[in-house]
């Protein structure tokens, strides 16, 4: 990166870069892990898949609540959705300008995190509809029953699926679930790419604050 050294001496315009609080950090890594396992590894519809979905829903809800009552860096007020600012931030990065420091997410990062939350809620809630709201424990119990030769569990499931109306409706919900999940994985990859680009442009490792470590 051909950065002029004079730019590097500019001390971030007086804004302290964010130090993420433990709830933000822990929820971030737990959700990331669950998304990877549910998106790439485990079997859709299995008790583990549904259980992780439930856990993600709980974690995201806590994080959204934390956005109102948490410390300044975690609060929504610190990173309001601003699409035009996000575009100008990305434009600046493309022109190899050194970005300024923000007290929380930068405008592009803010748009990314709101999109990711929306997708996480979409995926988990459509998942709830697809399973008829059956808990992972029920699913595990039913699966165990089926495995031991008691097929009545399958009959019990059937009315639950009817509750969602016609099978077309069920198919649409399933399609939304799958599309949103794929989009989530793509955006997660884009998010990692964004962290790499921004880290280079800022000249500091942005992964460190998410691991709870101070300046490099």
């Amino acid at each position: 990166m051909g950065r002029a050294p004079s730019l590097k001496t500019d001390p971030a315009g007086g804004v302290k870069p964010p130090v993420w609080d433990p709830l933000v950090r822990l929820s971030h890594w737990l959700v990331a892990l669950a998304v990877l396992v549910n998106g790439l590894i485990d079997k859709p519809g299995a008790a583990l898949h549904v259980g992780l979905g439930w856990a993600v829903l709980a974690i995201v809800l806590v994080r959204l609540g934390w956005g109102f009552v948490g410390p300044a860096t975690a609060r929504f007020a610190s990173f309001p959705p601003a699409p035009f600012k996000a575009l100008s931030h990305l434009g600046g990065l493309a022109r190899r300008q050194r970005p300024r420091e923000y007290p929380s997410h930068n405008p592009a990062g803010a748009m990314m995190v709101y999109t990711l939350w929306a997708l996480l809620l979409t995926v988990t809630l459509t998942g709830l509809v697809m399973t008829g709201g059956r808990s992972p424990m029920t699913i595990a119990a039913d699966q165990a029953a089926v495995n031991s030769g008691d097929w009545s569990a399958l009959v019990k499931q059937a009315p639950a699926e009817d509750d969602e109306g016609d099978s077309d409706g069920g198919k649409i919900v399933g399609a939304i679930h799958e599309t949103a999940a794929n989009l989530l994985l793509i955006l997660a990859a884009l998010h990692v790419g964004g962290v790499v680009v921004e880290s280079r442009a800022l000249g500091r490792n942005l992964v460190r604050p998410m691991l709870g470590r101070g300046k490099a």
Binding site: L23, W54, A58, L61
Partner: peptide
Amino acid sequence: AAVVLVQAVAALF
């Protein structure tokens, strides 16, 4: 923070 998240997951389940 860990307690909050574990409690939230447990509560939802």
